[in-house]
């Protein structure tokens, strides 16, 4: 997978392991969930109830586009949430974690 490269002189915080959609991934303390997901590759963090992809847009907590499930709590802004060791992060599909979608998520 393609990964973002760091400019010279930028040091990252201590590496920790988080779970992204059930797969262990390396992330760094001092970074946001949004940063970790961007560094991990994919531009989209969720699919709306209407089936459209959404990614990290404003990056400052205003637009509510980068919603993910963090430790079981859906609609959590990836850009406003700090990485913690062992954190469970899931992309969203509609109102639920991706892969756990129920039919009624798309009816609104």
């Amino acid at each position: 997978m393609r990964r973002a490269t760091l400019p010279a002189g930028v040091r990252r915080g201590p590496a920790v392991t988080v779970n992204v959609d059930g797969t262990p991934r390396q992330a760094h303390l001092g970074e946001t969930v949004a940063a970790a997901l961007m560094a991990d590759g994919g531009p989209a963090v969720r699919v709306t109830r209407g089936g459209e992809p959404r990614g990290i847009y404003c990056g400052m907590g205003v637009c509510f586009e980068c919603l993910v499930v963090v430790d079981g709590v859906p609609n959590t802004r990836a850009c406003m949430t700090w990485i913690r060791d062992g954190m469970d992060i899931r992309h969203m599909d509609g109102l639920a974690a991706a892969g756990l979608t129920k039919e009624n998520d798309h009816d609104a």
């Binding site: 994919g42 989209a44 699919v47 209407g50 089936g51 992809p53 992309h91 599909d93 979608t101 798309h106």
Partner: peptide, 20 residues
């Protein structure tokens, strides 16, 4: 080409966004 992403490459047929 974009890397595969489970959040957008869903195999399930999402309703068209014009379907409101």
């Amino acid at each position: 080409p974009l890397p595969p992403n489970p959040a957008i490459d869903m195999p399930t047929g999402h309703p068209d966004s014009s379907h409101v």
